[in-house]
Amino acid sequence: MSYSVAVAGASGYAGGELLRLLSSHPDFIVSTVTAFQNAGQRLVDVQPHLRSLGTLSLAETTPQNLAGHDVVFLALPHGKSGEVTAQLPENILVVDCGADHRLTDPADWAAFYGSEYFGAWAYGVPELIVGGGKQRDNLVGATRIAAPGCNASTVALSLAPGIAGGVIEEKDLVAVLAVGPSGAGKSLKLENLASEILGSANPYAVGGTHRHIPEIQQSLRGAGAVDPTISLTPVIVPMSRGILATSTARILPGTSATAVRDAWAAAYADEPFIHLLPEGKLPRSGDAIGANTALMGLAVDQAAGRVVVITALDNLVKGTAGAAIQSANLALGIPETTGLPMDGVAP
């Protein structure tokens, strides 16, 4: 069965990545692409790497242009998608790659975003541990899905097995992430110009101010934490895309190194897109570029009493567009891995 698809925000990085993946999806037919400032231009003039979609032109992003499709993907800045989705029919599948529908607590939204709260949708991280199961169970048959924040899903996937397995403490969680500037979007920002980031590593949103913190805490509560605390420090590094997240947590007293590793191995043993590397092996960010895979390396620091989880993924694929399509597959009853690459691009 084929599904007609519209992509809003098609001129941005996330929108372009959605279209790159959708172009080879056997069940999704992209028939409409929309934008704001770039409306009226040919898609290929804005996204010149998308040659297979060269016949499409960018329409204006309005509910009228998006309605009438089976599936709508939104890749819009926060505050924009909520305005649009409120006017879309309930019987179509809408997947929001922005932040507007991720948080379940209006107080968290007010504290970290400060704009109108549009309510929470099914969270689009299928592998995330929720109670005794996985989040994919909540995505089957869903018509409204919130794709994750890339930093948030990376850290949550890194730490949730330890929470659910009862091997780490939920306090004093720490995550430091090396991230590519594409995660900040395509609009021009001085701090993300090549002359500013080449040869430099630049921290941002430090000291508990990053907007993905409540999203991480929300996910960890779903895995069994009660009141988790996390120090999150992202650092922009000179690579166009990718995340290398180093997440650490205190190991519960009396827990063996074997039990720690077993918690992660059990959590992801059957997951097609999350790979726990053999003991002693650690991932590189480049190993996951272009793929919908998250690669994890795990080490136990006996002297410090902490577990160290290093996770590499592509922020535009597994962190955003790939997660959105994977979740849409589940919602529609399509095999979860359909249209999604497991192999990265090298060098």
Rank of each mutant, 00 (worst) to 15 (best):
T258P: 01
A259I: 00
A259F: 02
A259C: 02
A259D: 15
A259L: 04
A259P: 02
V260L: 03
V260S: 05
V260F: 02
V260H: 03
V260G: 06
V260Y: 06
R261L: 12
R261I: 08
R261G: 09
D262L: 13
D262Y: 04
D262S: 15
A263W: 09
A263Y: 08
W264D: 10
W264K: 13
A265F: 00
A265G: 01
A265K: 09
A266W: 04
A267P: 08
A267N: 12
A267W: 06
A267M: 10
Y268E: 11
Y268F: 15
Y268C: 11
A269E: 11
A269I: 05
D270L: 06
D270H: 09
D270M: 09
D270S: 15
E271D: 15
E271F: 08
E271Q: 14
E271I: 05
P272Q: 07
F273A: 11
F273N: 14
I274K: 07
I274D: 11
I274E: 03
H275M: 10
H275T: 14
H275W: 07
H275P: 01
H275K: 14
L276D: 04
L277E: 00
L277P: 03
L277M: 07
P278N: 06
E279L: 01
E279I: 00
G280C: 08
G280E: 09
G280R: 09
L282Q: 15
L282T: 12
P283V: 08
P283R: 11
P283A: 06
P283S: 13
R284M: 13
R284V: 01
R284I: 00
S285I: 07
S285G: 10
S285Y: 13
G286E: 14
G286L: 03
G286D: 13
D287W: 01
D287C: 04
D287L: 05
A288C: 03
A288G: 04
A288S: 14
A288M: 05
A288E: 01
A288F: 02
A288Q: 01
A288D: 02
I289S: 09
I289N: 10
I289R: 07
I289E: 13
G290N: 02
G290F: 01
A291Q: 10
A291K: 10
A291Y: 07
A291G: 14
N292M: 04
N292A: 09
N292R: 08
N292Q: 09
N292Y: 01
T293C: 04
T293Q: 02
T293Y: 00
T293K: 00
A294H: 10
A294Y: 05
A294P: 02
A294L: 15
A294R: 02
A294T: 14
L295A: 11
L295Y: 06
L295G: 08
L295W: 01
L295V: 06
M296S: 06
M296K: 00
M296Q: 07
M296H: 07
G297K: 06
L298H: 10
L298F: 07
L298A: 10
L298M: 14
L298R: 12
A299G: 12
A299P: 03
V300H: 08
V300E: 04
V300S: 01
D301E: 12
D301L: 11
D301C: 08
D301W: 06
D301H: 11
Q302S: 15
Q302R: 13
A303V: 09
A303T: 04
A303G: 01
A304S: 13
A304K: 12
G305E: 11
G305N: 09
G305D: 04
G305P: 11
